[in-house]
Computed example of a mutant assay.
Amino acid sequence: MSHNNKGLAVFDLIGRVFLAFIFVFAAIGKIENYHGTRLYMTSYGVPGGLLPVVIAVELLSGLAVMAGLWTRWAASLLALFSIAAIAIFHQNFSTMSDQIVTLAEVSFTGGLIVLAVNGPGCFSLDAFLKRGKT
């Protein structure tokens, strides 16, 4: 996203960091509770061997979005990851809490799609690297 006003552009940075924070935080939680997360995944029919990939996607893509590096790709990957998580893990709507978690996942996905389409803004490594090439 490009802003004529650099003061407003700082909100692109803040938004990216806020949006990606949950993925980094979730990856760290999965590392800290590796065995429990693996059991949770397998209870839904997801092979436990995919857990390192899940952690890598969340952690590396989350950090990339925060930094604004390869932002469109990282945001797209996290959006696809979120869609898969919704389809696999968030099918229970029996309680308000379950509904809110699912809707939060949908909201994150929407934000990631917007970021993938509009880009990271001028306060990003992508913008810095682009300026260096011109």
Score class of each variant (00 low, 15 high):
V65Q: 03
I31V: 09
F11K: 09
A127T: 09
A67W: 06
L103I: 15
L59D: 05
A56T: 15
D12P: 01
N118K: 10
F89N: 02
S76P: 06
M66F: 04
I86N: 02
F93Q: 12
S43F: 12
T134F: 14
A79N: 06
L51W: 00
F21Y: 08
A104V: 14
A74N: 09
I14H: 10
K6I: 15
S94M: 13
A26M: 04
H90T: 02
V106R: 02
K130F: 08
P120D: 05
N5T: 07
H90P: 05
T109G: 07
G48C: 02
V57Y: 06
E58Q: 07
T42G: 12
F93W: 10
W70E: 01
T134A: 12
V117D: 02
V10I: 15
L8D: 08
L51V: 13
N33C: 11
W73Y: 14
I22F: 05
V24L: 06
I83C: 11
L39C: 12
G132F: 08
G62A: 01
D98S: 09
Y34I: 11
I86R: 03
F25P: 11
R16I: 00
A64N: 03
G15Y: 00
H90A: 05
C122W: 14
N4A: 15
G121K: 01
A79F: 05
I28Y: 03
H3Q: 11
F128G: 05
R16H: 04
V117H: 05
G36A: 13
A127S: 11
A74H: 07
M96C: 12
N92L: 10
T37G: 08
V53L: 14
G49F: 06
V117Y: 12
S124D: 04
A27R: 05
I100R: 00
T71N: 06
I28V: 15
Y40G: 08
P47V: 12
Y34F: 14
E32P: 11
A104D: 07
S97Y: 13
A27C: 04
L63E: 14
I22E: 02
K133T: 13
S82T: 13
A9R: 11
I31W: 08
G7K: 13
T102I: 13
G48W: 13
A84F: 02
L115E: 10
Q91M: 05
A104T: 12
A75S: 03
F123Y: 08
K6P: 15
L39M: 12
G110Y: 03
F93T: 15
T42F: 08
L115I: 01
L39Q: 07
S61G: 14
L80R: 13
T102K: 03
T42K: 12
I100K: 00
W73C: 05
A84W: 02
I14N: 11
V46C: 05
A79I: 00
A64C: 11
E105S: 13
W70F: 15
Y40W: 06
R131D: 05
E58W: 05
G111M: 04
A64W: 00
I31A: 09
K130P: 07
D12K: 02
I55T: 03
I88K: 00
A75H: 04
